[in-house]
Design a protein around this nucleic acid. Structure first.
Length: 878
RNA sequence: GCCCGGGUGGCGAAACGGGUAGACGCGGGCGACUUAAAAUCGCCUGGCCAUCGGCCUUGCAGGUUCGAGUCCUGCCCCGGGCACCA
């Protein structure tokens, strides 16, 4: 039979499942390796070709490590709470549980059809009551440790989604999901005190083998600033002091006014009667203003004078106190000392309102811009003549001595807003009483499950969906018999993904979230692969929970993920043209234009000939007609040339590739191979329908290397016993060494190219030897496991190839007898020489100078210098 | 605006401490097999000039070096992150 993945792949997938080939077991005699994928949200669209990229990479490594003798933990599960199932429920009335179950089944079928070596006995679903129980248990732990609290905070309210969002989920004043407008509103919410862990979250990044840009993003997000807190007495309000945070205490002598955030608690109290109306109007306006509106006005500073004044602790000078929304209530102390000469924002503000700009650090020209660099302190009393660093030290000591301030560290990181006004999430495991107290549920009361609803919209009057379940919300505490209310909020989707990697260690435990034994054996995760979009969100939250669990003695490592790799996105080719049917009228007969006949004019795109505005249209990949020279053409409009664009796959662009179709046509092994061959794992690259042909041919060629398709009964080819001819054995050894190095370095694309060379050349000169054949299959097994298993079986092996030993290259075979050296004359390659590997430098030099093209290019000159680079080349300078 | 990545053939890419630029694959060309096509196999395929051969070429312009895709300086373009954080 010719190579037919449709027959052999399902057969081996069934074999692996039946035999539990990939069951992970604690085996103290072996080193362990935990290789983890970021588990997916099982969406209704099913898998797209982007998912299997990371999954294939981790699978290759898992299979490789098993063959190297590791006990490998390689699990898969579902991050199954989330918005889409809930929105689908609102539209159709289908319970999210039903949608979720259906989507999981589809995802699982698709993932299994790729032949990944997951231990399915460890499958996790974050919506499963057996999992929710422990997510709630960990929330209780956070609460017990003082890390969960309720607070009335200004939140990011998204009216379209009907919920609040974490700061991290708001991009440019719009929701990350859907791009809906977000406004600031004060609301009572659950918060997690991630800020308590800011320092450790920052410091422990150093020990992690993560991409530097990701670490930097986390460092920037945490945003540590070193400086000082300084207290300014408010005049006429004895005992009242405004505390500010500054990174430049050395500029204190240049503080010519102060600014409070409009939300600052002192505003009402200190505002003078004549300023009250103006201040109140400004505060009202700025609370109503959306984050987006505030952002749009960054260049124009606004603010009002409160009429109050404060005393500069250094100069004793009286300075005015203003309020302005360029000072953020949520950072530092919500108040600043303004030093317009040395801060760009204060400078702009001072210019707008005619406030004094006083230079206290030399080095710039403050008459036309703020000078923010270091310099020598001037007009600063005790600091005069000191460089910036020294001046900072001196003034902090001075302030500390007088009790007017002290050195301080501040972070940009805010506490984590942890409640959502939604249905499909984990309920908070506690009861609220009328007196404002609350009781966390005990172990035997967990999990607290969601009530059933048939309407999942927010309740009337601004309530959450859960408030529709009156008899669930209104209850009686079985412990005290008191009337109680359940919390109407649910946890955000991040909750489940904050600890799933721990549950994978011991997924069916009913008594604890995971046993100490399992955690101690498997943790930390040795390799974690997923998309870079989780750089701050998931990865920061999970690290935070992990540290809390560490402090509680439940895990033994400070960090959960030792090595992190971000796979690049798989992009798609889309095909574009333009028409003037701006209203999308289905009955219109629009004028169509190729991209070569339009131009961009500001925000709009117009046709070059008429100047009429046009709109982009996409032709789905399957409908594109191919002209001569592979020119993409519109399927029906003759002569309309389409523009090929590489972009993110999306339904609207018609460039989505369905893995099911790829597998049906080429098989899972080809799909796996192509996903890896397309380029380096970390890099984004477009999926090419032609490209997969190349790896498919490689698999067919491999098949024919073993199976004689020309004969009627298609037998296995005769294999020469033993290691084969020396050149063959050397090629095999070189490939073993190369592929091993590439796999260790996650360079799967080059590993595959080396396998291609091996298959191409291994039987070129001599018939295939048995040792070479078996080594080839073992090298291929992690990449194309179905084909490798099938041929391994046909070679007469009873057991799966999955636990065969990974081959080791014989060093004797790696060493060649002669080597070819390039010879350059004045840096340009002119000839090459063949010399024994152990040739002396003198012999190499002589051979190089004797090479015909070298003689010719030297034109009789005596070489000034001959550089011999061992094993590489010779450069003759003359 | 600031901070990260990244620019190498028609395309995806390779080149691991500066040492033969373009491995491997796609696409393309030529040939073999075939009544024919597909499949398969073999050869060629960075550009320019050419008889031997030579010149140019890793976004652009410089520099260091016997030698630069790789190191340094300045600039251009693309992708991502942050965005009044005092």
């Amino acid at each position: 039979m010719p190579y037919d993945p449709r027959v052999i792949e399902p057969r081996w997938q069934a074999y692996w499942l039946e035999n539990e080939t990939f069951r992970a077991e604690i085996d103290p005699s072996k080193p362990k390796y935990y290789v983890l994928d970021m588990f997916p949200y099982p969406s209704g669209d099913g898998l797209h070709v982007g998912h299997p990229e990371g999954y294939t990479a981790t699978d290759i490594l898992a299979r490789y490590k098993r063959m190297c003798g590791y006990s490998v933990l390689h699990p898969m599960g579902w991050d199954a709470f989330g918005l889409p199932a809930e929105q689908y429920a609102i539209k159709t009335g289908t319970h999210p549980r039903v949608t979720t179950r259906r989507n999981i089944e589809n995802f699982k079928r698709q993932i299994q059809s790729l032949g990944f070596s997951y231990d399915w006995a460890r499958e996790i679903d974050t919506t499963d009551p057996g999992y929710v129980k422990w997510t709630q248990w960990i929330f209780r732990l956070l609460h017990e440790r003082g890390l969960a609290y309720e607070a009335e905070v200004p939140v990011n309210w998204c009216p379209a989604l009907g919920t609040v969002l974490a700061n991290e989920e708001v991009i440019d004043g719009r929701s990350e999901i859907g791009g809906h407008p977000v406004v600031r509103l004060p609301m009572r919410q659950w918060m997690l005190r991630i800020t308590h862990y800011a320092e450790r979250l920052l410091d422990d990044l150093d020990e992690l083998d993560w991409p530097e840009p990701i670490k930097k993003q986390q460092r920037d997000w945490i945003g540590r600033s070193e400086g000082a807190r300084v207290r300014f007495a408010v005049e006429g309000h004895p005992g009242r002091e405004i505390e500010v945070f500054t990174t430049r205490p050395d500029t204190l002598f240049g503080a010519t006014y102060m600014v409070l955030a409009p939300e600052h608690p002192f505003v009402d109290e200190i505002t003078t009667p004549d300023r009250r109306a103006a201040v109140r109007a400004y505060v009202d306006a700025s609370t109503r203003k959306s984050e987006r509106a505030r952002l749009a006005e960054v260049k124009e500073k606004t603010g009002v004078d409160t009429g109050a004044r404060a005393t500069n602790p250094c100069t004793g000078e009286s300075v005015p106190i203003w309020i302005a929304d360029y000072v953020l209530a949520t950072y530092g102390t919500g108040a600043i000392m303004a030093v317009p000469a040395h801060d760009e924002r204060d400078y702009a503000f001072a210019r707008t309102f005619g406030l004094e700009i006083r230079e206290v650090v030399s080095g710039g020209d403050v008459s036309h811009e703020a000078y923010t660099g270091d310099g020598i302190a001037v007009r600063s009393g005790l600091l005069d003549g000191l460089p910036t660093a020294e001046a900072k030290r001196r003034i902090v000591a001075w302030l500390t001595e007088r009790g007017a301030g002290e050195g301080a560290v501040t972070y940009k990181l805010r506490d984590w807003l942890f409640s959502r006004q939604r249905y499909w999430g984990e309920p908070f495991p506690l009861l609220h009483f009328d007196d404002g107290t609350a009781r966390l549920l005990r172990d035997d009361e967990l999990p607290l499950l969601l009530p059933d609803l048939d309407d999942f919209r927010p309740a009337e009057g601004g309530g959450t969906p859960l408030e529709r379940a009156r008899d669930w919300i209104e209850t009686v505490d079985p412990v005290s018999g008191r009337r109680a209310r359940r919390d109407p909020n649910v946890m955000p989707q991040w909750a489940g993904s904050c600890w799933y990697y721990l549950r994978f260690c011991d997924p069916r435990n009913e008594h604890v979230p995971f046993s100490a034994e399992a955690e101690r054996h498997w943790m930390p995760v040795d390799l974690y692969v997923g998309g870079a979009e989780h750089a701050v969100l998931h990865l920061l939250y999970a690290r935070f929970w992990h540290k809390v669990l560490y402090d509680a003695g439940l895990v033994h490592t400070r960090e959960p993920f030792r090595k992190l790799v971000n796979q690049g996105m798989i992009l798609g080719y889309s095909y574009r043209y333009w028409d003037d049917n701006l209203e999308d009228d289905p009955n219109a007969t629009p004028r169509c234009h190729p991209s070569s006949a339009v131009r961009i004019e500001g925000e709009h795109v117009v046709a070059t000939d008429t100047g009429a505005e046009v709109k982009a249209r996409w032709v789905p990949l399957q409908q594109v007609r191919w002209g001569p020279d592979r020119t993409p053409l519109h399927p029906t409009i003759s002569g309309l040339v389409l523009e090929e664009v590489v972009e993110k796959m999306s339904k609207s662009r018609g460039n989505v590739i369905n893995p099911d179709e790829v597998i049906a046509e080429y098989g899972a092994d080809a799909m796996r191979l192509y996903e890896m061959f397309i380029g380096p794992l970390e890099k984004a690259a477009p999926w090419s329908t032609d490209g997969i042909q190349g790896v498919h041919r490689f698999l067919q060629r491999t098949w024919r290397l073993f199976v004689d398709e020309d004969r009627e009964d298609e037998p296995l080819r005769d294999l020469a016993p033993g290691p084969g001819a020396p050149p063959q054995a050397r090629l095999v050894a070189r490939t073993v060494a190369g592929v091993t190095g590439d796999v260790e370095g996650l360079a799967f694309n080059t590993a595959i190219s080396k396998l291609m060379v091996l298959v191409r050349d291994v039987a070129k000169e001599a018939p295939l030897a048995r040792d070479a054949a078996e080594t080839l299959l073992r090298l291929l097994a992690p990449f194309a496991p179905h084909l490798a298993e099938e041929l391994w079986r046909r070679l007469g092996h009873e057991r799966s190839i999955a636990y065969e030993a990974w081959p080791v290259a014989d060093p004797a075979l790696l060493a060649a007898e002669t080597m070819t050296l390039a010879v350059q004359v004045n840096g340009k390659r002119r000839d090459e020489i063949e010399v024994p590997v152990d040739a002396s430098e003198g012999a190499i030099r002589a051979a190089a100078l004797a090479a015909p093209n070298v003689v010719r290019h030297l034109e009789g000159r005596t070489p000034k210098k001959v550089i011999v680079v061992p094993g590489r080349l010779v450069n003759v300078v003359g």
